[in-house]
Design a protein around this nucleic acid. Structure first.
Lengths: 292, 292
DNA sequence: GGTGTTTGCTAACGGTGTTCACTAAAGCGT
DNA sequence: ACGCTTTAGTGAACACCGTTAGCAAACACC
């Protein structure tokens, strides 16, 4: 059984594979190796670069809209080009294929999510760590449920992408997103809010993985004990679980509104972290129409 | 902006929509309304029914193989038909489209997962509730990591299916799968292993959702308190989270082996349930080559 | 103005889901 | 055994999809 690269995915063909299988090296963004001859590298972008950047942004915007309107499977280069008044092959001057376009917008979306969380975080007094955490986590869920399609492509299985696609831009953005929480967690740690779990319940293998986790994610202030990293992982897993379950609608037929369950989980998680939980109403810095 | 039903997904077209939009009622399995005239309803299936059933099974088998080999996006009616030595339209005698085929195999996979868990459960002494739970949950993860593509389509976002697709068969199967765990949980409850959480931390909204959950899932032995249902939900969310995170490979670049983290979460969950945790080695009923 | 880069188009190939009209076969009743 | 009905499967067609190759116009720079 041979596989031949044809169309969108490699797909088995019944008959023999005629000729050698040539997997061409994909030129990432074609014909762009020579910069605008003049070395204006450090200076302001040339007119060409500006308009180029603009159309790339337009491509991504339309792709994004198609994503939310028709789901990940509904994003297609041809439809995007049609809407822009050009043809699909033209887009290859900007993106090296549908896969890389999806990766690009995924990276963008991580940026947006991070910004949304950061904005929520900044909207409360910076010295109130408890409230900041509470607000940030709620903002995460809010963004997720109001951006279901986006969340699914960011945090769901990579079902659309060909397996060999390079996803590092998205990973990078995801890493940066994670950093949003690390600083808050670091504060909790510094304030010694919660007791670290029993160290001898952490097997050597787990310790190794946790160390790798902390190192790769950059937040390895050298003193951080593995126990703390484990707590962070656990919390993240629980948050991820409850939000995924809501966005992927796996309890849909059984639970109409998932917010109460989320709040309950949130309460559990925070309590374990020594953070005071407040109900959504009581935690908003009430400017509730106090008539003066 | 009009949308026209064309090809796989509704997609916006730039030009006007010529003619009325006729959304034909999809006949579920065509030309099968009249049973084989003779009323052999209760008797053994007719020869026709048997061969029909056989080809349906073949279709699903091939689809399944393509799913694991090329991912969900790689399952196509044309490829399946090609492999069976027939043409794509012929498959419409058996399935009403690619979507319903995917739903069908999803339902099958829930059945297999449930069977795998049940088999693991049955492989340990039935009176040892602790070990049964431990084994069942580990079996769940095992199945998930050895059937990643399947797990992704079962528990991930419905990214491939058109939004209006009827997924009830899959949901039904999922519900049956859940029941695998309910009985075990019921035992825990009966044995009063863990203290129920504070009832007044459960808001009325949450209580209502939890009740609905229990009712719909059938395991509403009328005495079950909402507190217990909440514990069950929490556990399920955590299990779901850690397994999803592993299968969807969201910590891939940061953690090579996720098993230690899973075991750690498992330990946390079980401890909260009053179930004794045992490491994988110590929990296997050791027949470890004791030379006689 | 000439020259080289960049952009976008057309045409083409091979893939997809789905419908429709049709043939051939199988099953059933008499 | 014959005829009728129901079914299985085909081929052509339509509207999509991603991607490549070759070419012509637009642009930037000298």
């Amino acid at each position: 059984m041979f596989t031949k690269a044809c169309g969108r995915y490699d797909v088995n063909v019944a008959d023999e594979d005629h000729g050698a299988l040539i997997r061409r090296q994909r030129r990432d963004v074609p014909q762009q190796m020579t910069k605008p001859q003049l070395d204006r590298g450090a200076g302001k972008p040339s007119r060409r670069e500006r308009v180029r950047e603009a159309t790339l942004v337009e491509i991504k915007e339309i792709a994004r809209r198609h994503l939310v309107e028709h789901g990940a499977a509904g994003v297609s280069l041809r439809a995007i080009a049609r809407e822009m008044g050009m043809t699909a092959p033209g887009l290859y001057r900007y993106v090296s294929g549908i896969d890389s376009l999806l990766v690009l917008i995924t990276a963008d979306m991580f940026g947006e999510l991070a910004a949304a969380v950061a904005a929520a975080d900044a909207s409360v007094p910076s010295e109130d760590t408890d409230l900041r955490i509470l607000t940030s986590l709620r903002a995460f869920r809010s963004w997720a449920v109001t951006h279901r399609a986006e969340f699914a492509t960011m945090f769901g299985p990579r079902v659309r992408l060909a397996p060999e696609t390079d996803v590092t831009p998205a990973l990078e953005a995801g890493r940066r997103f994670g950093a949003t929480f690390y600083t808050l967690f670091d504060r909790l740690l510094a304030e010694e809010r919660f007791p670290l779990p029993d160290g001898d319940r952490i097997t050597p293998e787990l310790a190794r993985e946790l160390r790798a986790f902390a190192d790769t994610c950059g937040f390895s202030a050298p003193h951080i004990p593995v126990e703390a990293i484990m707590v962070l992982s656990t919390c993240w897993v629980r948050l991820y679980g409850v939000v995924c379950m809501e966005v992927f609608e796996h309890l849909n037929f059984v639970m109409r509104d998932m917010e109460p369950l989320f709040e309950s989980e949130l309460q559990n998680i925070l309590t374990g972290l020594g953070v005071r939980y407040r109900t959504p109403e009581s935690s908003t810095p009430v400017t509730m129409s106090t008539p003066d």
